[in-house]
């Protein structure tokens, strides 16, 4: 009875905390203004893709499309067939790089995260602190020696140069390890008593239990690879990526502005759709993302 009354009282306090009207109003105004700031360029990108050419070059420029048309997409398909390297080739390259890189990253990072999350063995702590340290600097630092390693391996001008380093990004391993720590030890012990090997435990027990983390690694890795323009590594035209093609179209200037907008929309929508699908899994993984003492 007293407990019940206490609960109700707490509930009332909680309500009052939330009810300060001006503060709430200010907060939501803030949210709306900055939400608009975040969304406007994207809304613009979507609108642009459906604008007929004369609307793209209207003065004064207009934000929203008036007579939406699919022309840009038809032009895109036409260009795909006509250019020296068909656009579908760029698309296939991007697809291969993205899928192999992302799947490989998830597999390798999970395999490495499992022992680090669940066991203590010589070197385990040192290895993990090195991974945290690697989060603290950007890949730019290692760009030059990376290029040397690539040329030593003979990977320049191959997709391997983009795919393989992406498999070992430290952020994925870090998040996966933090997520795996919450798998109950009893589950693993039971499997061990049944005589399962470490590899079997990893594959049949640990992996199915960390599906949300797979999706998270995918969401973090996918846009990076999907948006790559090949950097300094790819020279052959037939190996270049879709984003590179987009940059060329944008640089190509006025005549292709509509097609550029269509490609941009396509490049943008794929990762966003993936995020919409996987959002709840991503959030549940991120809950374990903290750096603990």
């Amino acid at each position: 009875m007293t407990l019940f009354r206490k609960r109700r009282k707490i509930f009332r306090i909680k309500k009052r905390l939330n009810r300060s009207f001006t503060v709430s109003f200010l907060m939501f105004a803030l949210l709306a203004v900055f939400g608009a700031f975040m969304a406007l360029p994207l809304v613009y990108a979507i609108n642009n893709a459906f604008k007929p050419l004369d609307e793209i070059f209207l003065f004064p420029p207009r934000f929203f499309v008036r007579n939406p048309t699919m022309d840009n997409f038809f032009d895109l398909v036409a260009i795909m067939g006509n250019s020296w390297v068909p656009l579908s080739r760029y698309f296939a390259n991007t697809l291969v790089i993205t899928i192999v890189g992302t799947v490989g990253h998830i597999l390798l990072a999970s395999a490495a995260a499992y022992p680090l999350a669940k066991y203590r063995f010589p070197g385990s702590k040192t290895i993990f602190s090195i991974v945290i340290l690697a989060l603290m600097f950007s890949p730019h630092v290692t760009a030059i020696p990376n290029y040397m390693v690539m040329s030593w391996l003979g990977w320049i001008d191959t997709h391997l140069a983009l795919i393989v380093p992406a498999m070992a990004f430290p952020l994925g391993l870090f998040l996966m390890k933090q997520f795996m720590e919450q798998i109950p030890d009893a589950l693993l012990e039971a499997a061990k008593i049944d005589g399962a090997s470490e590899y079997r435990i990893f594959w049949t027990i640990v992996m199915p239990n960390v599906k949300p983390a797979w999706l998270t690694l995918m969401i973090l890795q996918f846009p990076m690879l999907w948006g790559t323009n090949g950097g300094n590594f790819i020279y052959s035209e037939s190996l270049k990526t879709l984003n590179y093609a987009l940059e060329q179209i944008v640089l190509g200037g006025i005549a292709r502005a509509g097609v550029g907008a269509a490609v941009a929309l396509f490049l943008m929508m794929v990762p966003i759709t993936l995020f919409v699908i996987s959002q709840s899994s991503v959030i549940s993984t991120m809950a374990n993302s903290g750096i603990k003492d």
């Binding site: 390798l108 990072a109 395999a111 490495a112 499992y114 022992p115 680090l116 066991y119 063995f121 010589p122 385990s124 290895i127 090195i130 991974v131 690697a134 600097f137 630092v141 290692t142 030059i144 020696p145 990376n146 040397m148 390693v149 393989v164 380093p165 498999m167 070992a168 430290p170 391993l173 090997s197 470490e198 590899y199 990893f202």
Partner: peptide
């Protein structure tokens, strides 16, 4: 005892070493 763990971690850390650790040292 940790043999299996090292084997599981090997693929990731070979790549990590090659493209992150060694480059920092080389740099």
């Amino acid at each position: 005892r940790g043999k299996h763990y090292y084997i599981l971690m090997a693929p990731y850390f070979i790549i990590f070493g090659l493209f992150t650790l060694i480059p920092v040292a080389v740099s």
